[in-house]
């Protein structure tokens, strides 16, 4: 079983996001990038499947920002091969283009199963995993929280609202959008990542050329106005506690 995990980076949302002078883009001078957290879950699920059933886990990413570190961290966690698609994506890339590059790369790398994160914080033109599935003509299930293999099929749980899930049997190869792995994604010790930098090699895979337009243009970006702003409760922890108690009493909640 060869499991391919395409990964993408997103702006680190812990940092303040600034919009540049064009008003149409994030100010990239101050952007820090990190691995999309859902892709981390996809990798974890891939590693768990490999531990259960054998096979190999292959990670592929686009050429931008922290790509090398992301790939070596994947090796430190247990991935077997790492690929980078050349073509500088530092200026950002839309999801249709990313998915087309991943599709071209996937065809030349080969796979039995593709796991992606369910979504990412900057998916303006749709989720990469499901676009990828369509470009490859493969069956897909998104928002997957449980995954097991039965012969040439996968049994997946797809999450709906209210805690209800649907169970599907899917003939492989297929693409799944992983919402959450069965376990919290494992941690890669810094020493192992460092070792991976020294001993592992990033392979190159062609992503082909992608069309320039995706049929929509960004007019502007802006910080949403908050409808109302919360009233601040300030002071020492004890002051704050006292004020909350008064407030609860006045609202008949205590």
């Amino acid at each position: 079983m060869k499991i391919l995990v395409p990964m993408k980076q997103v702006p680190d949302l812990v940092e303040e996001l600034e919009i540049d002078s064009s008003g149409k883009r994030l100010n990239r001078d101050f952007l820090k990038f990190k691995l999309n957290e859902f892709d981390e879950h996809a990798l974890e699920e891939a590693l768990l499947l490999k531990e259960q059933h054998g096979g190999e886990v292959v990670v592929v990413t686009l050429d931008m920002a922290e790509a090398d570190n992301l790939l070596f961290t994947a090796i430190a966690k247990g991935a077997d091969k790492i690929f980078k698609i050349p073509g500088n994506c530092d200026e950002g890339i839309d999801c249709h283009s990313a998915a087309q590059m991943f599709a071209t790369a996937a065809k030349s790398i080969g796979f039995d199963l593709i796991l992606t994160g369910v979504q990412a914080a900057d998916d303006r033109d749709g989720q990469v995993g499901m676009l990828l599935a369509a470009f490859l003509g493969l069956p897909h299930v998104s928002v997957v929280t449980g995954l097991s293999l039965e012969g040439a099929s996968a049994i997946v749980h797809k999450e709906y609202a209210g805690g209800v899930m649907a169970e599907f049997e899917v003939v492989l190869p297929a693409v799944f959008g992983i919402q959450a792995a069965r376990h919290t994604p494992r941690y890669a010790p810094v020493s192992k990542v460092r070792q991976a930098w020294k001993t592992s090699k990033i392979e190159t895979v062609d992503g082909g050329t992608v069309p320039a337009s995706n049929g929509s243009v960004v007019n502007r970006m802006f910080k949403p106005e908050s409808g109302k702003r919360a009233e601040l409760i300030e002071g020492s922890p004890d002051d704050v506690a006292g004020k909350i108690v008064d407030l609860l009493k006045s609202r008949g909640l205590l």
């Binding site: 996001l17 914080a121 303006r124 049929g215 929509s216 970006m221």
Partner: peptide, 16 residues
């Protein structure tokens, strides 16, 4: 579109 975990909104025009 509501993007970046609700921190930034992005307004797009359809060109097709």
């Amino acid at each position: 579109s509501q993007l970046y975990a609700g921190k930034v909104d992005v307004e797009s025009s359809i060109t097709s």
